[in-house]
Write a protein that binds this DNA or RNA. Structure first.
Lengths: 187, 187
DNA sequence: TGTAGCATGTAAGCCGTTACATGATTGA
DNA sequence: TCAATCATGTAACGGCTTACATGCTACA
């Protein structure tokens, strides 16, 4: 039996839920694509190889079932969450207290040691960061729009909007920081 | 020679900078305490054992120098950043483009799968989260206050204020989310 | 016909954690 | 004198990544 899984395992299991028990399930490849599209915004998107090893582990513990599309083979394995898997996911959701979020922020880390650079270099770094923020935001907007107004995806929608609000706030903060830097730099 | 270091290595090296080249340096133990106090807010605070192994690696590459306080022994080793270490840190600061921040957000992850819980359970989760946010914020306020208004810590101050603004925004977003959840839950 | 994307894995290795082990120093 | 804290490590292991290997399928 597989007992305690990593959070990433539960996250993948959770993505599988949205494919529905009726649906034909997903291949590992498709699961990775979905993770790239959504999970990476507030967790991480595991490497392809990890997706496969996690799926193997989940299948081993009976939390997912494997079905084949055409003739049984090693290609086009489609994974669906099992009743046991759903149970385990519910238990995890209900019983485990979520850890406090972990933020790994290379830009903030470099700003901390700002004294090692020139103000100009720091300004450029912040400007670059704002550009990638805008790009990320645009990617998330696409996700948000694809969700539409359907009640069955109300929770994913809330999370997407959370992300958008976060990006907006982050951009504002960084803009203010850049201004402040310009002022003190010109003293 | 140690060439490319992990970001965590550079982060620790960066903390060593603030101890100053004149200062007697820091023990591994003290470095860990400083990381716990500040670094964890926008990076991670490495385990004690990792602090020691990173310091050993840095010393190996000549990026830090080791001095003893009293009689040379294996106790009270004090580490100082070397000229080479400072050079490497500057190079890293100047030449590497910072990665986009990674956020691991267990609360958002669980909200995504909100359908597996009751609205009440979700409300409780969000309320718990807001409490820990408030606590974290209070810890960061302490750091901020300890920095005062000194120009030599202008950058750490900016980063601390960034963090505070982030926590404020996050709390606002979560509060709105909780309201939204209450409305849709009562439909 | 060939290249891009679909699809599934294995192997090596890094980063980082927890558990374990040891001992000195400080203060109640 | 006893407990807490200071101080430094080693060993085992988990999670995750990169690099490598393989082959099918669709389509230009």
């Amino acid at each position: 039996m597989g007992q305690d899984l990593s959070t990433t395992s539960y996250a993948l299991l959770g993505l599988l839920v949205f494919s529905g028990p009726d649906a034909p399930g997903m291949t590992g490849y498709e699961l990775k694509q979905r993770a790239d599209r959504t999970l990476r915004f507030y967790w991480v998107s595991p490497a392809m190889s990890q997706v496969y090893s996690e799926l193997a582990r989940l299948a081993d513990g009976g939390l997912v079932t494997v079905g084949f599309d055409g003739p049984a083979g090693r290609r086009d394995r489609r994974y669906r969450i099992s009743a046991l898997g759903l149970q385990r996911l519910r238990d995890w959701q209900a019983e485990s207290t979520p850890e406090f979020p972990v933020l790994k922020h290379p830009v903030a880390l470099r700003l901390l040691m700002g004294g090692l650079s020139t103000p100009d270099q720091l300004q450029e770094m912040l400007a670059d960061y704002r550009r990638s923020l805008a790009q990320r935001r645009a990617e998330l907007v696409e996700v948000r729009e694809s969700l539409g107004d359907r009640p069955e995806v109300a929770y994913p929608t809330m999370v997407a909007e959370w992300g958008l609000a976060y990006y907006d706030s982050e951009d504002e903060i960084v803009a203010r920081l850049a201004e402040q830097l310009a002022e003190t730099g010109s003293d």
